[in-house]
């Protein structure tokens, strides 16, 4: 059984922001929301600059799922964490809980830059997050699904566009076992640098990945 994961290689990311743009374009993401973003650490410091592309990591023990007061999140059999916008009440708890800053709120203010405070009671609208290009509860590939969650590439047998179009192959996405193989090979050739960013937080330590074990049956 495939367990979908993202992997970003800090040695390869060149901060081109193509993954960000591709995501926005593919899903027609609402204004002010970044389902994916690129963060540069030690920007401009020669020899210390590292960039990292980050979105929802589709955690094994997802904090957003745990704190949602209406229990609108669910995890598919491929380990993708999705949410039902028909149930979401826009309380913001998933936004507080997520380590990666993935769930965000559209409309006027809650996640948008300052100065757009038109929404005085922070009504916030429905939360939006990366879907691993897997759509939502609506029928696969339907118009309703697209308008709420964006395109459903997984049901077409494709992988997230951000990863598939990454020019340096810094960002990888897909079956976790295959990704680990690809990365292992890469590290062997490179000689060093086996840290995989975010995997410890998102998927637990090796041997803790209970969700892959249960889904093997």
């Amino acid at each position: 059984m495939a367990r979908m994961k993202f992997l970003c290689d800090a040695e390869r990311c060149i901060e081109c922001n193509a993954c960000v743009t591709a995501c926005k374009n593919e899903h027609e993401v609402p204004w002010g929301i970044n389902r994916r973003r690129v963060v540069t650490i030690n920007d401009g410091q020669v020899g210390a600059e590292k960039s990292m592309s980050v979105a929802c990591m589709h955690c094994s023990d997802a904090p957003c799922m745990a704190v949602c007061p209406v229990d609108c999140f669910y995890k598919t059999e491929d380990g993708v964490v999705l949410h039902d916008k028909d149930l979401c009440i826009g309380c913001g708890y998933c936004f507080y809980a997520c380590p990666f800053g993935a769930p965000q709120f559209p409309a006027s203010n809650a996640s948008a830059p300052g100065g757009q405070a038109t929404d005085w009671f922070g009504a916030r609208g429905k939360m939006d997050k990366c879907t691993f290009c897997a759509g939502g509860p609506e029928e696969n590939g339907s118009e309703a699904e697209f308008s709420k969650y964006g395109r459903n590439r997984l049901s077409e047998g494709k992988l997230p566009l951000c990863a598939e179009m990454c020019s340096t192959k810094a960002l990888l996405g897909g079956d976790g076992d295959v990704l680990a193989d690809i990365y292992r090979e890469r590290v062997t050739v490179r000689g060093k640098g086996a840290e995989v960013w975010g995997w410890g937080t998102a998927y637990g330590k090796p041997g803790q990945q209970s969700d892959t074990a249960t889904s093997d049956k």
Binding site: E15, N17, V20, R37, V39, S111
Partner: peptide, 10 residues
């Protein structure tokens, strides 16, 4: 850290 994305704590 620095980012091109706009948003709180991006």
């Amino acid at each position: 850290h620095s980012t091109q994305a706009t948003g709180r704590e991006a």
